[in-house]
C-alpha cells in the first residue's frame, strides 16, 4: 500500500498546488460570492480542455526523460490542414472523421520528432525547437496563412454539442460541451497506458534510467518513438478541438503557448530529469494556470498582473522543492 504519510503528502507538488487553488477560490468567493457557481466552473472547464490535453501530452514526454516544445505547432498544423482538406474534399464529413484526420496528421508529425530523437539521437529540446519552426513555417508557407471562419458544418456542430446545459437559480446560463469529455477520455487513456501497460511502465523506467532500461532489455527506441507519436496525436486532437470550439481555423493561434503548458505540467510535479509525473498533478497545474488566466480580477488583482502571477507561481512551485532538495543534500552529504 502506498504510504501516504503526512510528511510525504506535505512535500508533494500536488498538495502545494491544490492548497493554492483552494486558497484562490476562497479568496475569490470572499470578494465575489457569485464566483463559486456552476457557471464559473463550466467556464473554467471549457477553458481547460485544450491546454489540458496538451499538458497531458507534455507530461508524457517529461516522464520519458525528454522535452517537447513543438506540440503547439503540431496542434495548429493538424487543425488547419485538416480544415483545409475537409473543405476541399468533403465539407460534410462527419466530425469524428475530421477528428481522426487531425489526430492522424498530428501522429505523423510526432513521428518526425520521434525519428530525430530515436534514430538520430539528437537532444529532444533541440529537435523539437527545430520542428516547431519547420511545422509552423511549412503550414504558413504551403498550406495557408488566412484565418478560416467558414468551418465545415460538422465542426461547428461539434462545438454546439452539449453534455448538459441550463440556467442556474441565479439566472445565469451554463453549458458543458462534449469537448470536456474528450479531455476526460484522454486522461483515462493516458492513465491506462502509463499505469496498466508494460509500455507505460517502460516509459517510466526509461525516464528513471535510460541505461538500466537498456540493460534489462526494454525496447527503449520503440517506447520513445511511441511517446512522440502519441504526443503528436494528442496535439492533433487538441488542435481540432481548439478550432471547433473557437469556430475558426486560425493558423497563428496556439504557438507560443508551449512554455505555459510545460509550466503547468512542472507545477504539477513532473520533473525535467524524467521518470516523475502524475495526471492528478498535471490537471491541478492546468487548473491553477487557467484559474489565474481567467479569474485573477475576481481576487482583486488587475488582469495586467496575470503574467507576473503565473511567473511567480512557477518560481514558487519549482523553487520550493529545489530548495528543499538542496538543503537535504547539504544536510546528508
Amino acid at each position: 500500500m502506498n504510504r501516504l504519510s503526512l510528511k510525504n503528502l506535505a512535500t508533494r507538488n500536488e498538495t502545494l498546488v491544490a492548497v493554492v487553488i483552494v486558497a484562490f477560490c476562497l479568496l475569490a468567493t470572499f470578494s465575489d460570492p457569485l464566483f463559486l457557481s456552476v457557471t464559473t466552473l463550466t467556464d473554467l472547464m471549457r477553458a481547460s480542455v485544450v491546454i489540458g490535453i496538451l499538458a497531458v501530452a507534455a507530461m508524457m514526454v517529461l516522464i520519458s526523460g525528454g522535452i517537447d516544445v513543438s506540440f503547439t505547432a503540431i496542434a495548429v498544423f493538424a487543425m488547419y490542414s485538416t480544415t483545409v482538406l475537409t473543405l476541399a474534399v468533403m465539407p460534410d464529413m462527419p466530425w469524428y472523421f475530421i477528428f481522426a484526420i487531425s489526430i492522424g496528421i498530428g501522429a505523423c508529425l510526432g513521428a518526425i520528432n520521434g525519428f530525430f530523437v530515436v534514430i538520430c539521437r539528437l537532444p529532444t529540446l533541440i529537435v523539437t525547437l527545430g520542428t516547431l519552426s519547420v511545422f509552423r513555417g511549412f503550414l504558413l508557407t504551403f498550406i495557408g496563412s488566412q484565418r478560416i471562419s467558414a468551418l465545415p458544418p460538422e465542426m461547428r456542430g461539434f462545438s454546439r454539442m452539449m453534455i448538459a446545459r441550463g440556467t442556474t437559480e441565479a439566472g445565469s446560463f451554463y453549458a458543458i460541451p462534449w469537448a470536456v469529455a474528450a479531455l476526460a477520455i484522454v486522461v483515462l487513456l493516458t492513465l491506462f497506458i502509463l499505469h496498466k501497460t508494460m509500455l507505460g511502465r517502460s516509459i517510466f523506467a526509461i525516464g528513471g534510467s535510460l541505461e538500466s532500461a537498456r540493460r534489462i532489455g526494454i525496447n527503449v527506441r520503440g517506447a520513445q518513438f511511441f511517446v512522440y507519436c502519441y504526443v503528436g496525436a494528442l496535439a492533433g486532437l487538441a488542435g481540432i478541438i481548439h478550432g471547433a470550439m473557437g469556430r475558426m481555423a486560425d493558423p497563428f493561434s496556439l504557438v507560443g503557448l508551449e512554455l505555459s503548458v510545460i509550466a503547468a505540467v512542472v507545477l504539477g510535479g513532473a520533473r525535467l530529469i524524467g521518470g516523475y509525473g502524475t495526471l492528478t498533478g498535471t490537471l491541478l497545474g492546468v487548473s491553477l494556470i487557467v484559474l489565474v488566466e481567467n479569474s485573477l480580477i475576481v481576487v482583486g488583482i488587475p488582469s495586467t498582473w496575470q503574467f507576473v502571477t503565473i511567473g511567480l507561481l512557477i518560481l514558487l512551485g519549482t523553487g520550493l522543492p529545489a530548495w528543499q532538495a538542496k538543503r537535504a543534500a547539504a544536510k546528508s552529504a
Binding site: M198, S202, F204, G207, S212, R215, I216, G217, I218, G275
Partner: peptide
Amino acid sequence: FQDFSLFSNLTVAENIAFATQLSGKKRLF
C-alpha cells in the same frame, strides 16, 4: 552492476519483477 542498475523512481516490486514481466511478452502490466 556496481551501480545496481535500478530504477529509483519505481517501486521495489516493479524493479524486481520488470525483467521477468518483459520476457513474458505481456502487453498489460
